[in-house]
Design a protein around this nucleic acid. Structure first.
Length: 575
RNA sequence: GCGCCCGUAGCUCAGUUGGAUAGAGCACGAGCCUUCUAAGCUUGGGGCCGCAGGUUCGAAUCCUGCCGGGCGCGCCA
């Protein structure tokens, strides 16, 4: 399905072709920057085209003259009520009321699919998100990236992509060894030993107690005094598996389910880093060299060592990056580049969602993907800023040392999945955000979650009330819809365009802001019925008007529901 | 020292990838409830879009340089 705006872009293209044929416009002028958009100021019309201003100079024409010539062509289109040339050469189109009524019918026919686009042409996008280390339960630091990644994945699906939702399990580094040792302590504890305080440097959380118990149950006491080499791998794998079960359960609370969980350990076992290194050495992009001493603070322990380095400076990075440590094992980056190359085998484009604290490593991984794929796979890293947790304006205290951080599960239990998801999308990803427990559950218009949900619930309530009166929505009397009604219809008809532009920008928060605007317009309309009974959607003595407005309200409800679906938020039927 | 992100109303933030007179909410002022749900609505004031240049028909948006804030700059993950 093409959007209204795409249809008019095609009309303009055709009009330009005609002008070329008539000799008014010279052929071959670059048309790439032409747009058809709703004007910022609705009083200018329904659609605004910039074609005349963009083409005037390369075509050597006066922009207003070109605009007038185009306007004459566009005026002939059936759905166009009027065409104006304004300002420096804007072409403002006003559509007939019937054209907007037809949009309402499209919404009704489209149902849950209204707003879906074929823009992505079925190309495969791999979205990697969450990828929290498997060393404990999900906490609120992970939450925003999880929601943004998941909503972005759904958004891309609506925009016509096939999406792979992927989680990279960092089960190969030093942190999971620490996890294994922590589990060993809990294992001894489970066998009756008094282990006392959990020592510094190990994970203290209670969540490892059942892991220790399971290990004790399965293996008895034979690893109690055994050297680490006897049990480390076993304990690590057991603990990581348990952590991943926990993380999957936490994510499920948010309605998040990944398609693929990729293990760093398996990436290494399958020699993917070696393969990537060979490719890069072949291209002269990995060499054995010595890093310069770090700038800034002087480290007395720094010693020059020869390491295999990736030439990321060739792609704009500050320095070349080691892919192996001096002990011969792979660095995080060394494995990660191989992992990204692996993802690129089954996708046309890659997107990673990272916490902003990893911003410093974006250049090297982008460089590596470009180098390994020859630049054939577009790769975006979206950085998600931190969330500050508040309760009634006061920061929530978190003590990482005691393991008493605020877990995602606790927050979802307290405020609900829908509130968490919606709130996380009420700010663009690269802006910092406050999450105040008191505010997000507030039932007032200050709270966008509530405000949008309430609009949907109001529409459901209206339908129930009309059903009791024996009136059902009907698209056969849409002529009874007036200017105020059609104003709402115009806003509702924006959804397809919003889906496309939000998907192109990879910014799911735009859907949230759009829904807020739509809900505000709806509430405003609704309230106008307080003063003027003829503005009410339900009028028992005017069944035709009611049926038509019910059709309008249903369309708005559908659009809200579809937008919320992209965000992964349920559309409440009553509050 | 270098890199990345940010700077828009008193506050919190949008701004449709460069469009027309820069928007919304909160807060402040003025109105509105025997309600199709006031869990709100209507309306008013409030701006050097950090500063200075540049690019062009047009800049909050793109480029350069400053100023200010945040984050990062290990063979960590």
């Amino acid at each position: 399905m093409t959007t209204l705006y795409a249809r008019y872009a095609a009309h303009i293209d055709a009009a330009l072709d005609a002008l070329e044929k008539e000799g008014v416009l010279q052929p071959g002028v670059d048309r790439r920057n032409l747009t058809v958009e709703p004007p910022r100021d609705a009083s200018h019309g329904d659609l605004a085209a910039n074609a005349a201003m963009v083409l005037a100079k390369p075509a050597g024409m006066n922009p207003r003259a070109l605009a007038e010539a185009l306007a004459a062509k566009l005026n002939a289109i059936d759905d166009v009520a009027s065409v104006d040339v304004a300002g420096p050469g804007f072409i403002n189109l006003r559509l007939t009321d019937d054209a907007w009524r037809a949009e309402l019918t499209l919404i009704a026919e489209g149902g849950a699919d209204y707003g879906r686009s074929t823009l992505g042409k079925g190309s495969i996008v791999n979205v990697e998100y969450v990828s929290a280390n498997p060393t404990g339960p999900m906490h609120m630091g992970h939450c925003r990236g999880a929601v943004v990644g998941d909503a972005l994945a759904t958004l891309l699906e609506h925009a016509g992509h096939k999406v792979i939702r992927e989680y990279y399990v960092n089960d190969a580094g030093g942190q999971v060894d620490v996890l294994a040792r922590s589990a060993h302590l809990r294992y001894r504890e489970a066998l009756g030993e008094d282990v006392g305080e959990i020592p510094e440097g190990l994970y203290p959380g209670d969540y490892l107690i059942p892991v220790g118990q399971k290990l004790a149950h399965d293996h008895g006491d034979r690893f109690v005094g055994a050297p680490e080499s006897d049990w480390l791998v076993l304990f690590r794998e057991t603990a990581v598996a348990a952590m991943m079960d926990m993380i999957r359960a936490d994510l499920a609370l948010l309605g998040i389910h990944h398609d693929v969980f990729s293990s760093e350990a398996i990436v290494q076992r399958e020699k993917k880093p070696e393969a990537a290194e060979a490719i890069l050495r072949e291209k002269g992009l990995v060499y054995d060299g010595v890093l310069e001493a770090p700038k800034g603070e002087v480290d007395p322990d720094w010693e020059p060592v020869t390491l295999p380095l990736f030439r990321s400076t060739q792609f704009g990075d500050d320095q070349d990056r080691p892919i192996k440590k001096s002990n011969g094992s792979w660095t995080y980056f060394g494995a990660d580049m191989a992992y990204h190359f692996q993802k690129a085998q089954t996708a046309d484009a890659l997107i990673d969602i990272w916490g902003a604290d990893h911003a410093g490593t974006v250049k090297r991984i982008k460089a590596a993907v470009t180098a390994l794929t020859g630049g054939t796979k577009p790769f975006d890293v979206k950085l998600v800023q931190m969330v500050r947790l508040l309760r009634g304006g006061e920061p929530v205290k978190m003590s990482k040392r005691s393991g008493n951080f605020v877990t995602l599960a606790d927050v979802v239990r307290e405020v609900g999945k829908d509130v968490v998801r919606f709130t996380m999308l009420t700010r663009k990803a690269d802006a910092q955000m406050d999450f105040d427990f008191a505010k997000v559950v507030e039932a007032s218009k200050d709270n966008p979650v509530f405000y949008v949900q309430y609009a949907h619930a109001r529409i459901c309530s209206l339908k129930r009330k009309a059903a009791e009166a024996g009136i059902t929505a009907s698209g056969s009397e849409l002529g009874r819809l007036d200017a105020a009604d059609l104003g709402l219809a115009k806003l509702a008809a924006q959804l397809p365009r919003l889906v496309e532009s939000a998907a192109l920008a990879r910014e799911p928060h735009r859907i949230a802001f759009y829904l807020y605007d739509l809900a505000a317009a709806f509430h405003s309309y609704w309230n106008s019925g307080n003063d003027d009974p003829t503005r009410r959607m339900f009028q028992a003595d005017a069944p035709e008007v009611t049926a038509a407005r019910l059709f309008l309200a249903s369309a708005i409800g559908q659009v809200i529901a579809n937008g919320l679906a992209i965000m992964g938020v349920a559309a409440a039927e009553e509050m």
